[in-house]
Amino acid sequence: MTRRLAVLVAAAVVTLTLAAGAWAAFAPLATGSRELTFVIPLGTASRLKEGTPLTVLPSPIHLTVGVRDVLVITNDDEVVHQVGPIILGPRQTYRIPFRRPGRFQYACSLHATGTLTLFIDAEPAAGLERLRWRLDDWKFHGRQQLPR
């Protein structure tokens, strides 16, 4: 009896896992927003002056055409900040949509390497690519977002 139950439970788990995998691999990618937002928080300038090491932007940044393809950088600080070639006044936002895959490299003093790299990836095809995109998104997306 218990053995039969165990087999049933195992079968159910396998079926559910396969179903979830199939969904992740084939369901169209849709996110609530196509924007990937980075915020330069209030007080960044004074923290930089104190010498506190800050990660304002990760590098590289990945965007995906058709899914998450709008980069938004907002300056919530009270002074002007420059991110690569983008100069943002206090409370100013730069919003740039990308419609084609590509790679952009900017000189950026905020990065230890001196460069900010931006990858615009092609929309992942249904199947393994889409499954991998979902896993990566789940793993890394949280880290691309900075606390507001």
């Binding site: 980069l71 983008i86 943002l88 006044g89 100013q92 936002t93 730069y94 919003r95 740039i96 949509p97 419609r99």
Partner: peptide, 12 residues
Amino acid sequence: AAFRGGAFEPPR
């Protein structure tokens, strides 16, 4: 009025 190049908001 959405711009296709990178836009500044608000403009200065």
